[in-house]
Design a protein around this nucleic acid. Structure first.
Lengths: 214, 214, 214, 214
DNA sequence: CATGAATGAGCGTTCATTCAT
DNA sequence: CATGAATGAACGCTCATTCAT
C-alpha cells in the first residue's frame, strides 16, 4: 500500500512537471504551434513519455485548463458561502482578486474557456473529460452571474441580464490577456495585464452600479 | 479597354468570392486549423486556384484583416473630423456603432488585431504588407485613444491612461465575439454579440464618466 | 494553296519564336526549374499557346535538341564528303569549328545528348520522336568516330577504340559548357567556353597523334 | 557511455544507409526528379524518417557531395605533401588514381561540383554548409591547378593557364561519367568509365607535355 | 488561333502518435 | 517506467496541362 501510494505520488509529480512545462509552451506558442517535442524538452522528458501521462495533446491541454477551472470554481464557491456577510460590490472586488490569482496560477486561465468549446478540440477528448469541463464551465459562469443577480435583487446593480454581466467580465479579462500576450510575442516586454484588469474592474463596477441619491 | 476592365472586375469578383469563403472558414476553425482545401471547397474552387489570387495562406488571411482595419480606420477618421461638433460621450456612441458595423462587415474584425501581432505570421508576409498593417493598427488604436484623451481633457471622463481605455474597448469587444463564436461552434445557434456589446458600452461609458455631483 | 503555305510559314515562325525563348530559359534554369509560364513569358505568349505548337514540355525540349543534332549531323556529313581531300588532323580542326558553331547556335548543344537518354524523358516523348533522336544521335557519334578511325588507319592517330575518342570529345565539350554555365549561375559573368575548348582540342589533338620521327 | 556510443554508431549507420540509397537515386534520376519518397523506399524507410537525419532534401544532397569532396581534398593534399619526391607527370598519374577512387567511392563525384554552384541550391543550404562547400571546392581546383603550375614551371608541360588545365580534367571526367550514366539509364549495362578515363589521361598527359626533341 | 483561369496530381516537410527496446 | 526512432497522415504550395471563351 505504502508502495502504491508512493507510486501514485510519483506519478502525480510527473504529471505536474509536464503540466508546468506545457503551460509555458502553450502560452508562448499557442496550441497549434506548440509541439509535443517542445513540451517534452521543456519538461526534460522525451516526447513518448508524455503519452504515459496524458492520452494525447488535446487531453494534456484540456487537463491544464480543467485545473484552472477547478481552482476558479473552488474560490468562487467561497464567495457564495459568505453570501450574507459581504455586499455585492465587495464580492466584485473578491472576484477581481480571484481572477488575478487565477492569472498568476495559469496565465492562459479563462482564455481556454473559448478554446475548450471548439468542436474540433472536443471531438478528440474523452467523453468524461468533456462532461467535466462542461459542468465546471457552467458552474463558474453561474457563480459569477449569481453575484450580479444578487446585486440586482438588492438594488445595487442596474437591472440587466446577470449572465451577460458575467460574460462581459470574462470576455474583457481574456481579451486583455490575449492582447498583452500578442504584444509580448511582438517583442514588447512589459506586462500591463494587472493594472489594466484593475482599471476594467474599477470602470465596470462603477458602470454597473445603480445611481443612488441625488 | 472595355475588355480589360471587365477582366479586372471579374478578377475582383473572384477575390471577393474567395475572401468571403475564407472569412467563414477562418472564423469557424481559426487560422491554423483552416486548410486551404477547406477554403477552396467553401469557395467552390480547387485549392490551387486560391494561389492565383493570393500569394499564400498568410497573405490571404492578412488581406482579409487589412480590409476590416481600413474600414475601421476610415470610419474613425470621420469622428476625428467632427471633433468639435460632438461631445466625447457622443463619440463613444459613434465608436460603438462603428465597431458593430465592423462586426457586421467581418465578424473576425478586431480579433485579428491580436493575430496580426504574432511574429510567426508577420514573418511570412511581404514587407509592404507588414508595414501597412502596423501602420493602420497604430492609427486605429491611436484614434480610439484620442477620443478618451479628449474626454479626459474636457473633464468628462475620469483621468486614466487613454491607451488603456482604448485597449479595454478593443479587448472587451473581441473577447465577446470570441466567446460567442465559441458557443456557436459548440452547437449554440443564438448570437448575442450585439446586445452584449450594447451593454458593454452602456456600462463602460457610465463607468468612465466623472461623477458630477450637482 | 497560297493561303495554306502562308499559314504553314506563320506556324513555323511561331514555333521558332517559342524555340528561341525556350532555349534561353532552359539554359538559364535547367529543364526542371524552367516553367512553361517562364517560357511563354519570354516568348511573349501565354502558356496555353505553347501547347498549340508542342505536345508537352518534354517534346518542346526534345525538339530543340533535335534541331541542334540535325545541325551537327548535317555539318558532319560535309566532312565525310570531303574525306579524301583533307587529312584526319585537319578534320579534327573542322570538327572543333563545327562544335563551336553548334555552341553558338544553341549553347546547350551536346549537353542534351545526356538528358535525351534518360528513361524518364523518353517515356514522355512520342515514339517517332524517340526513334528520330536515337537515330541521329547514333549518326553523330559514328561520324565523329569515323574521323578517328580514318586517322588510325592512316597511322596518324594512336591505335585506340575510335568510339572512345568520340566520346571523350563530346564529354569534354559538354563538361566544359556545364562547368561554365555553373559558374555563370553562380554569379560569374565571364565566359571562357571558347578558349577552353580551343585548348582542349589543342591538347587532345596532340595527345592523339602517333609520335613520329626519332 | 557505452550505450551512448552505440547509439551514436547506430545513428551513423542509419545516415550511411540513407546516404547510400540517396546516392543511387540521385545518380539515377538527378536531383529534381529524385523524390524523398523514392530515396526513403530505396533505404527501406519512410519519408518522414529521412528528416530525422537530414534537415531537408538539399542538405541530404549536399552532405553526400561534401563527403566526396572531402575525400578528394584529403587525397590531393597527399600529393602536395610529396611535392618534391615525384615529378609532375607522375603526379598526373596519381591524380588519375585519385579521381578513379573518388568515382568508386561515389560515382556522382565531381559532377556535383557543377550542381553545387547553382544559386538555387545554395540558397536552401545552411550558411556553414555553403562556406564549407565553397572552401573545399576552391581547395580542390587549386590543388589540381598546382600540379600543372609546377609542371609548367619545371618546363614539363606546355605553357597554358593552369586553372584551364584543371578545368579540362574535371570537365572531361564528369562529362564521361554523365555520358556513361546516360547510356546505363538508357538500358545499356556495361560501364566503360574506367577505361575511358584511362584513355583520357593518357591522351591529355601526352598532349600537355612539352615536346622534347632530342 | 490565342488566352489565361482552373485544375489536380505530386512534392517537400511537419508532427502527433506508436512501439520495440 | 522511459526512450526516441519510426511512421504516416496531412498540409501548403507548384506547375504542367486542359478548355471554355
Amino acid at each position: 500500500m505504502g508502495i502504491r501510494e508512493r507510486k501514485e505520488r510519483e506519478r502525480e509529480r510527473r504529471k505536474q512537471q509536464i503540466t508546468v512545462a506545457a503551460k509555458r509552451i502553450f502560452l508562448e506558442r499557442g496550441f497549434d504551434k506548440a509541439t509535443m517535442e517542445d513540451i517534452a524538452k521543456e519538461a526534460e522528458l522525451s516526447a513518448g513519455t508524455l503519452y504515459l501521462y496524458f492520452k494525447n495533446k488535446h487531453e494534456l491541454y484540456a487537463s491544464i485548463t480543467l485545473k484552472v477551472l477547478q481552482f476558479l470554481n473552488m474560490r468562487l464557491a467561497h464567495i457564495k458561502a459568505e453570501k450574507f456577510d459581504i455586499s455585492p460590490k465587495e464580492k466584485l472586488d473578491v472576484l477581481k482578486d480571484i481572477l488575478l490569482d487565477a492569472y498568476d496560477f495559469d496565465s492562459m486561465a479563462l482564455i481556454n474557456l473559448f478554446h475548450l468549446q471548439s468542436r474540433e478540440l472536443l471531438k478528440k477528448l474523452s467523453p468524461e473529460f468533456i462532461k467535466q469541463i462542461k459542468k465546471i464551465t457552467k458552474q463558474i459562469t453561474d457563480e459569477i452571474a449569481d453575484i450580479f443577480e444578487e446585486g440586482i435583487e438588492k438594488g445595487v446593480f442596474i437591472k440587466r441580464h446577470p449572465a451577460a454581466f458575467a460574460q462581459i467580465i470574462i470576455s474583457a479579462f481574456s481579451g486583455i490577456v490575449l492582447w498583452e500576450e500578442g504584444k509580448k510575442s511582438g517583442g514588447d516586454k512589459k506586462d500591463y495585464v494587472k493594472p489594466t484588469i484593475e482599471l476594467v474592474f474599477e470602470i465596470l463596477t462603477k458602470g454597473m452600479l445603480k445611481e443612488r441619491n441625488t
